[in-house]
Simulated assay, not measured.
Amino acid sequence: MTPPERYHFGASVRSLLVPRHDPCGVFTGDELWLTARTPEGPATLHLARDGQDLVATGYGPGEQWILDRADAIAGLRDDVTAFPALAAAHPLIKRLARTFEGIRLPATGLVFRSVLRAVLEQKVTGKEAHRAYRLICQNLSEPAPGPRELMLPPDPAVIAATPYWVFHPYGMEQRRTQALQRAAVVAARLELCADSADATRRLMALPGIGVWTAAEVVRVAYGDADAVSVGDFHIPNTVAWALAGEARGTDERMLELLEPFRGHRARVCELLAHGGIGAPKFGPRMPIRSFARF
């Protein structure tokens, strides 16, 4: 595969993995290993730089399926042709779009893989969510095919059949566990959604999954560049500060400021994150809790 000029491999694909350590994948700078449960069976994808090109290698029963989607997983199907004209509406976004023009949004085509991580990240710190993710993948799954020692994402059927008390030591309270298990029960249908809008509608019909979780899922599974995470703790403040110089913002104000970028509103939020832009912080940080001790 031949990426576009100035394509940034790491910044495009690193978000597919949980920070620091992901049992289901690893990024080393020049290569990405990613495991998945595809419609055709377990698979591992290896993406590696070879000069200006990307070389994809697949392993396991789902090898052909994941190879067919390798370009999308690398972000090479992400269409940014209309974005520069929209970015010109604000000098900061115009500058960030130029600075980070090599970043593309990946699209895995795998809904439940993203549901797992998004539900775990509901209303808790990243450290809590990532710990739960690692423990679930290590204890409720099995090794992935291929030469690397990686785990597959857990089987939705296993998630659905596992009693709540198993999740509790991982730091999962009952509300998030039940939301995850409801999605696991209908995981096969979720994977058949025609597009981002269809998946959003089906996800939000499940108790415990709202607009924030749905946006987090479809942005990765479908590469939806317009899926704004409404209800996020930080993003409304970041957008208000970056686009209007306001230290605090509501979801309504965030959407108002992002409206000129419709179609690429999530891309704008991603650019602000890549640019290290954040609103001023006031007060103490959110405490790290452990539901495992409750």
Rank of each mutant, 00 (worst) to 15 (best):
A118M: 02
L135S: 08
L105C: 14
R6Q: 05
A227N: 11
T238S: 08
D226L: 07
L192K: 14
E246H: 02
T162D: 02
V228H: 07
E40P: 09
T57M: 11
Y222G: 01
F282E: 15
V230C: 07
R69N: 13
V211D: 09
R248I: 09
P3R: 00
D71K: 07
Q52L: 10
I277E: 10
P143A: 04
K281D: 06
R285M: 08
D50L: 11
A132I: 01
V220A: 10
G278Q: 13
P260I: 02
D68V: 04
E63K: 15
P39I: 07
G58W: 08
V115W: 12
L272A: 01
F27I: 00
P84D: 05
P42T: 08
G223D: 04
D224R: 02
T250Q: 08
P145D: 01
M254W: 02
V217D: 01
R98N: 03
L192Q: 14
T213M: 02
R95S: 15
A244Q: 06
A161R: 13
T213H: 06
D50C: 13
D198K: 00
L76N: 07
R131E: 10
G60E: 09
A266N: 12
E31F: 04
M151E: 12
S114F: 04
L67T: 06
G126W: 05
L272Y: 04
I277Q: 09
P147F: 05
A225Y: 03
